[in-house]
Amino acid sequence: MSIDYDGRRFRALGGGDGVSSAYCQRGDLVWAVFEGGHVRRGTITGTCDEHGVLRLAYTMVLTSGEVIAGSSINTPRRLGDALVLREVWQRYGEHAATGVSYLEEVTEVAR
C-alpha cells in the first residue's frame, strides 16, 4: 500500500481527547505537529516505507508541563475511504510505558 501522508490529518480513533496532528511528507521523510486536549505541543519525525509503515520519534509538552519522548511504528489500514494507523508506541525516561493506539484520518473539512 503506497501512501502519501502529505496534507493528511489524524486524531485518536473515535475522536479521542481533542489531540490532532497534521502530517507532511517529502520522499520517505515524514513529520507532523500535534496539539489539543492535554498536549500543548508535539512533534513527530520519521520515515515511511514502501508499504506506508511509519517509523517515528516523537516529543511532546503536556499542559502539566511534563515533557514526554518516545517512538512508534504505525501500520496503515484502509477502512472504507478512511485510513487508520495502528500505532505501537513506547515512551522513554521517567514516563516509560508501552502501548497500542489507533489513529483515524480526519476527512471532514474544518469550519
Score class of each variant (00 low, 15 high):
Met1Lys: 11
Ser2Cys: 01
Ser2Phe: 08
Asp4Gln: 04
Tyr5His: 07
Gly7Ala: 10
Arg8Met: 08
Arg9Asp: 04
Arg9Lys: 15
Phe10Glu: 07
Arg11Phe: 07
Arg11His: 15
Arg11Asn: 11
Arg11Thr: 12
Ala12His: 00
Ala12Gln: 11
Ala12Lys: 07
Leu13Pro: 05
Leu13Glu: 07
Gly14Ala: 05
Gly14Val: 04
Gly18Asn: 04
Gly18His: 06
Val19Gly: 03
Ser20Met: 10
Ser20Cys: 09
Ser20Tyr: 04
Ser21Met: 07
Ala22Thr: 13
Ala22Lys: 15
Cys24Asp: 04
Gln25Glu: 05
Arg26Asp: 10
Arg26Ile: 12
Gly27Asn: 06
Gly27Met: 04
Asp28Lys: 06
Leu29Lys: 12
Val30Ser: 12
Val30Glu: 05
Trp31Lys: 04
Val33Met: 02
Val33Trp: 05
Val33Arg: 12
Val33Ile: 04
Phe34Glu: 00
Glu35Phe: 15
Glu35His: 11
Glu35Val: 12
Gly36Asn: 14
Gly37His: 03
Gly37Met: 00
Gly37Glu: 03
Gly37Lys: 10
Val39Thr: 15
Arg40Tyr: 02
Arg40Ser: 10
Arg41Gln: 12
Arg41Leu: 15
Gly42Asp: 12
Gly42Thr: 08
Gly42Phe: 11
Gly42Arg: 09
Ile44Glu: 10
Ile44Met: 02
Gly46Ile: 07
Thr47Lys: 02
Cys48Thr: 15
Cys48Asp: 09
Asp49Arg: 12
Glu50Val: 10
Glu50His: 14
His51Tyr: 15
His51Gly: 14
Gly52Met: 08
Val53Gly: 05
Val53Cys: 07
Leu54Lys: 04
Leu54Ser: 02
Arg55Asp: 07
Leu56Lys: 01
Ala57Tyr: 05
Tyr58Met: 08
Tyr58Glu: 09
Thr59Met: 15
Thr59Glu: 12
Met60Pro: 00
Met60Ala: 14
Met60Glu: 13
Val61Tyr: 01
Leu62Gly: 07
Leu62Lys: 11
Thr63Tyr: 01
Gly65Gln: 13
Glu66Val: 06
Val67Glu: 09
Ser71Arg: 13
Ile73Phe: 03
Ile73Met: 02
Thr75Asn: 06
Thr75Asp: 00
Thr75Pro: 01
Pro76Cys: 00
Pro76Asn: 03
Arg78Ala: 15
Arg78Tyr: 13
Leu79Asp: 12
Leu79Trp: 04
Leu79Pro: 00
Gly80Phe: 06
Asp81Pro: 01
Ala82Thr: 13
Leu83Phe: 05
Leu85Phe: 05
Leu85Thr: 08
Leu85Gln: 03
Val88Ser: 15
Val88Arg: 09
Trp89His: 05
Trp89Phe: 14
Gln90Met: 07
Arg91Phe: 07
Arg91Pro: 06
Tyr92Val: 11
Gly93Asn: 14
Glu94His: 01
His95Glu: 02
Ala96Met: 08
Ala97Phe: 02
Ala97Gln: 09
Ala97Met: 03
Thr98Arg: 08
Gly99Pro: 02
Gly99Phe: 06
Ser101Gly: 15
Tyr102Ile: 03
Leu103Pro: 01
Glu104Cys: 13
Glu104Leu: 02
Glu104Gln: 10
Val106Gly: 03
Thr107Asp: 00
Thr107Val: 15
Glu108Trp: 11
Val109Leu: 12
Ala110Asn: 09
Ala110Lys: 09
Ala110Ile: 05
Arg111Ile: 13
Arg111Glu: 14
Arg111Trp: 09
